[in-house]
Structure formats: C-alpha cells, structure tokens
C-alpha cells in the first residue's frame, strides 16, 4: 500500500501525499495547545534543516504498518523546561531533567497518536511504537539517502522547536 506514496514536503495538501504536511503541523499545534494552553506558530525552517535549533533534548518515535516513519521533536533544554512548566504549572527552577524527558516523550507520543488517527482516516493502518528521548549537545540524526524527510519549525515566544519526519519503505 505504501509503494509510491510520498509524504507532502511543503505542507500543502498534496493529493498524492499519504499524510499531507499540514496534518503533522496541526497535530503538533493541537497537542501543545491542549496540554499547555499556548499556541505555537509554524515558521519557515532555514535552508539547512539541522543547525538552526540546538536540539539538546529530542523525542523520537517510530510508526510502522502501511507506512513506516520516524518522527522526532527536538529542542533546547530551555524550551523543554518551559514545556514542563506550561504542562504542569511547576516553577521553572523545579523542572527536573527527568520531567523534561518524560514530558517530551508524552508530547511525541500524543503527536503520534494524532497522526495515527488521521492516517487511519485516510485508510492506512499504523502501529505506534515506544517513544524514546535522546539527550545531549548537538544531537543529529543521520539517515540513508533513500529516506524522505520533512522538517517543520515552530516558535512560541522566543522558544523554537523542530518536528522532523523520516519516511522510508521497508
């Protein structure tokens, strides 16, 4: 079923896209809005999708089935701490490392759940696997040339974060 089906790279509702780009954007916005009560703005990624956000904490999760993809949500520690504050109401100084990782894992899991629901609505079966969180300076994801990817950048105030989607055929 996934043969020849491409992800939309430009965020438009491409009629041949398995999951249009704006579905991913809307999933992120909805999850952030519901859990934190704030509305992120989607902004244009820089030409190089890598070095424009310091990804010190990155949640990643694989979806498999009729489509196979990995989605990642990367951000600085400062942004991750702000997420925890917005989600829980704790003071910034009380936002612990484990809470940041747990919060990002929950967010990426919810985003994946939304994407899955939308994919099911388009006739695809998807299974969401376990979320992981990578922590470290200048964390990069290196992938094979066959993998298609899409980057979406979001901003809340002066805090930026990136959603990346890596789509591949098994």
């Amino acid at each position: 079923m996934s043969e020849g089906i491409k992800l939309s790279k430009n965020g438009n509702d491409d009629s041949d896209a398995a999951i249009p780009g704006f579905y991913f954007s809307n999933s992120v916005k909805d999850v952030i809005h519901t859990t934190m009560g704030i509305e992120p703005n989607e902004i244009k990624p820089f030409s190089d999708g890598y070095d424009n956000v310091d990804e010190q904490i990155t949640g990643f999760l694989n979806l498999t089935g009729d489509l196979n993809m990995m989605i990642t949500l990367g951000m600085s520690r400062k942004t991750a701490a702000a997420f925890v504050v917005y989600m829980t109401g704790v003071q910034l100084a009380e936002a612990k490392d484990e809470d940041m990782c747990d919060g990002i894992a929950e967010i990426i899991n919810m985003v994946a759940g939304q994407i899955k629901t939308q994919a099911v609505g388009r006739g695809y079966h998807l299974k969401v696997l376990t979320p992981f969180v990578a922590v470290g300076e200048k964390c990069r994801i290196v992938y094979k040339s066959k993998v298609e990817n899409m980057t979406k950048r979001f901003r809340i105030g002066n805090l930026d974060f990136m959603l990346k989607v890596f789509y591949y055929h098994l």
């Binding site: 859990t35 989600m87 829980t88 109401g89 704790v90 809470d99 747990d102 919060g103 894992a105 929950e106």
Partner: peptide, 11 residues
Amino acid sequence: DSPVIHIMLRK
C-alpha cells in the same frame, strides 16, 4: 507511568 501526567491530572 508518566510523572508529568500525574502532575497534570492532580492539578
């Protein structure tokens, strides 16, 4: 299993 979800629900 998520401490953050516990805090959110408790609130």
